[in-house]
Amino acid sequence: MTDPATLPYRPCAGIMILNKDGKVFVGQRVDSEVEAWQMPQGGIDPGEDAEEAAYRELFEETGIAREHVSLVAISPEELFYDLPPELVGKVWKGKWRGQRQIWFLFRFHGEDSDVDIHTDHQEFIVWRWIEPAALPSMIVPFKKKLYEDVLAAFADHL
């Protein structure tokens, strides 16, 4: 088995979407055997900058078009998480030990009808708006610290 410490982190963009009521979008993952909620996130393609990746992932995972959001803030530094040892080698074809993410905070100006999770790259089976403070308790345990860091990075805007 490959030593996880020798693997790189996958470069990703993370997306926090705030609605007009100050609540945050979360979706329940389609590929999880447990009830796993998360905010949209995804890999940065070669040659793509992080902000473009964020807009692409936003649309691919939520169906929310760029014109329905405005960029509020970008995390001041990359945030990291490690996969649990039992998942290293099982996800992402064993190429990564976890993710390094640049997070983007978007304000959603659309209506709930502008959200469509039934996309070509469907990630979620259901979605909802929640209070930001509830995020760490809803996420899989190995991402809890990451979500606490995201909340801290955007605290002035929440």
Score class of each variant (00 low, 15 high):
Trp96Leu: 09
Gln101Arg: 04
Ile130Asp: 10
Ile74Asn: 02
Tyr55Leu: 06
Gly14Leu: 03
Pro141Ala: 06
Glu78Ser: 14
Asp149Pro: 14
Ile64Gln: 00
Ala133Met: 11
Val150Trp: 01
Ser113Pro: 07
Val150Lys: 01
Lys144Ser: 06
Met138Gly: 04
Phe104Thr: 02
Glu123Ile: 12
Thr2Pro: 15
Arg97Ile: 07
Lys90Arg: 10
Met16Ile: 15
Arg29Ile: 08
Phe59Ala: 08
Lys93Val: 15
Ala36Gly: 08
Glu123Met: 10
Lys93Cys: 13
Met39Ser: 01
His68Lys: 11
Lys90Pro: 09
Glu77Trp: 12
Pro76Asp: 10
Val24Phe: 01
Phe108Ser: 01
Glu60Cys: 04
Phe124Gln: 03
Val30Asn: 07
Leu79Trp: 01
Glu131Met: 14
Ala5Tyr: 07
Thr62Phe: 02
Met138Lys: 00
Gly43Tyr: 05
Gly43Lys: 09
Asp82Tyr: 10
Glu61Gln: 05
Gly94Ile: 05
Leu105Pro: 09
Asp120Lys: 10
Gln28His: 08
Glu61Ser: 06
Ser32Leu: 14
Gly89Cys: 13
Arg29Trp: 08
Ser32Asn: 09
Met138Glu: 09
Gln101Ala: 14
Asp156Lys: 07
Trp96Ile: 12
Tyr9Pro: 13
Phe142Ala: 05
Ala133Ser: 11
Pro136Thr: 11
Asp31Arg: 04
Asp31Asn: 11
Leu146Tyr: 02
Pro40Glu: 07
Lys145Cys: 14
Met16Pro: 08
Arg107Val: 15
Asp21Ile: 14
Pro132Ser: 08
Glu48Tyr: 00
Arg100Lys: 13
Lys144Glu: 01
Val72Cys: 07
Lys145Phe: 06
Phe25Lys: 05
Gln99Cys: 13
Phe154Asn: 01
Val24Arg: 00
Lys143Ala: 13
Ile117Asp: 01
Phe59Val: 09
Ile130Val: 14
Val140Glu: 12
Glu35Met: 11
Lys95Asn: 07
Gly94Cys: 05
Asp49Asn: 09
Met16Leu: 13
Pro85Lys: 07
Pro46His: 09
His118Thr: 12
Ala153Phe: 00
Gly63Glu: 05
Glu111Asn: 15
Thr2Gly: 15
Ala54Gly: 08
Phe108Leu: 06
Gly63Val: 08
Val126Glu: 05
Ser137Gln: 06
Ser70Glu: 06
Gly27Met: 01
Val126Ser: 06
Thr6Trp: 04
His109Gln: 07
His118Phe: 14
Leu79Val: 12
Val26Ala: 01
Met138Leu: 10
Ile117Gln: 00
